[in-house]
């Protein structure tokens, strides 16, 4: 599958409005970087929502030899927002082939990143803003930008890339994906950031999308968060 990974730092922060699909994007990114030969660590920094989180994808990650660092008490009886000292270990990893992906809780949950600001500034980072046109509070470029700035404020970091993860869950079809391009391009323009890909939840659409829109980059992401049925 054609995929040009935009960000190039060894520290990648994935953030966005709550429910925008940060965890799915983080997991897909981890898998694709692993496939490209990187040593990948996925860090679940979501201290906001104890229901759907990267920690749920742990089995899949282990199967693919991707290291996971989860909040100390994730999915236990004491699901308190607590981040272990282990998170710091990724800032001490000097291996040029290693990549750490931070899956961060939405909106003010990004404040959890603040404590690592000095490390991020020292080592350099990429920060991806995940956007979804079909989420009501971020359904216009203006609203998406407002949310993006809010996250930057709480995290004390700056976004470097945008991922267009516009989808309607199980009802996503090609038209749903296509009709989000204008929103995504405009949001990226407003934020003055590169849009590095549009995500596609159904692998079957990718060929057709590339035929119709050769100028864009599509990235297949599987829905890995908890399946209820």
């Amino acid at each position: 599958m054609k995929f040009n990974y935009g960000p190039s730092s060894r520290l990648i922060v994935v953030c966005g409005h709550f429910g925008s699909g940060k965890t799915n994007v983080s997991v897909a990114l981890a898998l694709s970087l692993k496939a490209a030969g990187k040593k990948v660590t996925l860090i679940d920094l979501d201290i906001v929502n104890p229901y759907f989180r990267a920690a749920d994808a742990e089995e899949l990650m282990h199967k693919n030899n991707i290291k996971c660092i989860n909040p100390q008490f994730a999915n236990t009886n004491v699901d308190v927002p607590s981040l272990g000292a282990e998170v710091r270990s990724v800032f001490l990893d000097n291996d040029p082939n290693s990549v750490a992906i931070f899956d961060v809780g939405g909106d003010n949950g990004a404040a959890a990143l603040g404590q690592y600001k000095r490390d991020f500034d020292r080592l350099g980072y990429d920060m991806i803003c995940v956007i979804n046109k079909y989420r009501p509070l971020t359904d216009t470029p203006g609203a998406a930008l407002e949310d993006l700035r809010e996250i930057e404020y709480y995290s004390r970091l700056k976004f470097t890339h945008i991922v267009n993860n516009s989808n309607l869950g199980a009802e996503t079809d090609i038209e749903i994906v296509e009709s989000s391009f204008e929103f995504a391009d405009k949001t990226a323009r407003l934020a003055d950031l590169p849009l590095f890909c549009d995500t596609v939840v159904n692998a079957a659409y990718i060929t057709e999308l590339y035929e119709k829109h050769p100028e864009r980059t599509f990235f297949f992401i599987d829905n890995t968060t908890k399946k209820l049925f």
Binding site: G19, R135, P136, D139, L168
Partner: peptide, 16 residues
């Protein structure tokens, strides 16, 4: 074009 949005049940209760 569809008027649908993607929402959590909790958000949908509030918006409704």
């Amino acid at each position: 074009m569809s008027n649908k949005v993607l929402m959590k049940g909790n958000e949908a209760l509030a918006e409704a």
